[in-house]
Nucleic acid binder design. Structure first.
Lengths: 197, 197
DNA sequence: CGGACCATGTAAGCGGTTACATGATTCT
DNA sequence: AGAATCATGTAACCGCTTACATGGTCCG
């Protein structure tokens, strides 16, 4: 159900087509949420049917056309309401830690490679998130600029602070995952030395 | 697909019924993986059909019976092979951070309550995980005891070390999430003070 | 004119959730 | 006799993935 609200969040800033939204989910927002076209287009149709969006046919070139979605009052209300709800926390289901618990079954080289992949993955994400923070602080984020332009000036600090808070949390998580995997690599080396002797 | 391997992991220790496995997923293993009965029973049937398990009908009382699943050589091989594979990392999809990024839309009281729920959730999980570590180190974990009994003595340290490594990682993650949410609460107070003045 | 990009979907399938359904056993 | 527990599922639904499919526009 979060996809719906992720879409609403973007559409509070400005009207967009399915394609625009899909781009957002591949670039900027993809660092927090991801969705493929095949999920976005049908969901937009459903949201329109539910009265959260209004779809407007816009001409595009001589024969082409596109559908621009505008958030409705009901959509805004649904979004605000979701923002005030407390999320339920689903039960744990974490393949990485499941495997870690049984690492004695893996070949030592494979165990090492898997921990290195974990590190590489989080380094990559962290770099993305660090860049996002730089954009927020430097005022070079396009979508944030548009968002701020629609909000009263005294709100600006607040809006920016929450975005930074979000990415700081993701960066801290990435740091923690990297540190954990590194301690795993150290453990593997240690166990290896112990069994050699 | 991880459910299948979580089941195999448990069945490497000893044969169990669907009910036994379901109990494991509600208690000990649930801290790393969760699954309801409705998912476990059909999956066991499929695994038997695929030759990973052998189901043995066992009498239970005068009229009752139960099905005890034993891992086969093919099952053991499938598990080892999975343990040597590198997992693919799915794209980010995190409702908590999605909401955090748009926290200016929430009522201040609601924002605070949500961060507190986040903290409460991770405190609860961390307590479970801390207890698991205590059980591992104190040698009071039943399933770990059985696992060790089946492994050569020189392997014991290795097996225990990986379990502890796993839970240490989960605990560190919980600590990080708690610290993040607390910094969010501090931020809310700060913004509140700023707008009051 | 061709290639990159804009634009919008359908369809099959999978893992997981939620609710429902049934009956035997063991213990007090 | 009744409660707690053991035991095993089915069925509808939902969000998401993967693969496939089609056609227009803009720019060099």
């Amino acid at each position: 159900m979060s996809l719906r609200y992720a879409l609403l969040a973007l559409l509070t800033v400005e009207p967009m087509t399915g394609y625009d939204l899909s781009k957002q989910f591949q670039s900027s927002v993809s660092h927090v949420w991801h969705a493929p076209d095949s999920q976005i287009y049908p969901e937009l149709r459903r949201m329109e049917k539910d009265g959260l969006l209004e779809g407007v046919e816009v001409a595009w070139g001589p024969r082409g056309k596109k559908r621009e979605y505008h958030i409705t009052d009901a959509g805004l209300e649904a979004f605000r309401s979701w923002m005030n709800e407390t999320l339920s926390y689903p039960p744990e289901r974490d393949p990485v830690h499941l495997k870690a618990a049984y690492l004695e079954w893996a070949e030592p080289d494979s165990a090492r490679a898997q921990l290195e992949a974990h590190i590489a993955n989080y380094i990559e994400r962290r770099d993305d998130w660090l860049q996002k923070v730089a954009e927020i602080e430097g005022g070079t984020s396009i979508i944030l600029g548009k968002r701020l332009a629609k909000a009263p000036v005294p709100e600006h600090a607040r809006i920016q602070a929450f975005k930074k808070f979000t990415y700081d949390g993701l960066i801290a998580r990435a740091d923690q995952e990297i540190a954990w995997a590194e301690s795993g690599l150290a453990l593997l080396s240690e166990l290896n030395r112990a069994s050699d002797s």
